[in-house]
Design a protein around this nucleic acid. Structure first.
Lengths: 128, 128
DNA sequence: TACGTATTTCATATTAGTTTGAAATAGATG
DNA sequence: CATCTATTTCAAACTAATATGAAATACGTA
């Protein structure tokens, strides 16, 4: 399988114009070069979903909600009281968490009760 | 411990003007009411760090980098070739990952080699 | 039906994150 | 030292996320 230039990627123009460090190059060859690395990547769709989930957890308000709901299901007014923010702001954040499958909600009379989904619990447990 | 209004929080003005669903109220009383919930929350500092870490993982480019470095340490030019983006953009994303302790880097000649930290590995492993 | 409470929706303002390309820096080599 | 390559830095343009308050909705009760 060896070509004229041992250690270089097979049949492709090089990544850099000069030779990259051999420690990297050797492993890279074993991995199948740039093509091999790309081949191992998850699909765009999966990568998008992973980053979207992290985005849903990337705000202090939402992490706080995650922790609160980790204790027990709560209606919006209790969450609001715990965090001390306005209703529309809270609704905005709850919605993002819901869209990303971290929480779901159920109406009971005037109140809407939010609880963690199994997925949400997983992330709440990671926190402690 | 029971007061005049059984099921209500002790000695505090109520969260809502009417009575919240009893399923919630009972658990809430056991948890020590709103005060009790707040008491269990992690510090602002910790909440901030958790959300910052998720933010560092909230972009498709950065998840892709995480996956690539999960295979092996790589120099910038190889990552660039795999993802197909400009150098300054890549540098921007690598910096965010570095600031959040997901990767570190080491210079070798003209090249800078990025690798996952243990923390970064943890998140890469979660992906698969 | 009319009214009160809890929650959401909507439009808009504000802020934060990302992209882009040109210029700067750092190391290697002649 | 001059030059080349790899990478970063910077400022500006662009885009996305968040905050805010007023209005709308949904339910309960009289």
């Amino acid at each position: 399988m060896a070509t004229k230039r041992p250690g270089a990627q097979s049949r492709k123009e090089p990544v850099c114009r000069t030779e990259i460090p051999s420690i990297i190059q050797c492993d890279l060859d074993e991995a199948g070069g740039v093509k091999g690395l790309i081949g191992r990547l998850p699909s765009q769709k999966i990568i998008g979903k992973i980053s979207a989930t992290h985005h849903a957890l990337s705000d202090p308000v939402r992490i706080t909600i995650l922790c609160l709901l980790g204790v027990q299901p709560l209606c919006v007014c209790v969450i609001k009281e715990c965090i001390g923010i306005g209703g529309s702001k809270l609704s905005y954040h709850l919605n993002i968490m819901k869209e990303n499958g971290l929480v779901d909600s159920e109406q009971q009379g005037n109140w809407i009760i939010y609880r963690l989904t199994d997925r949400g619990k997983k992330y709440a447990d990671e926190i402690g």
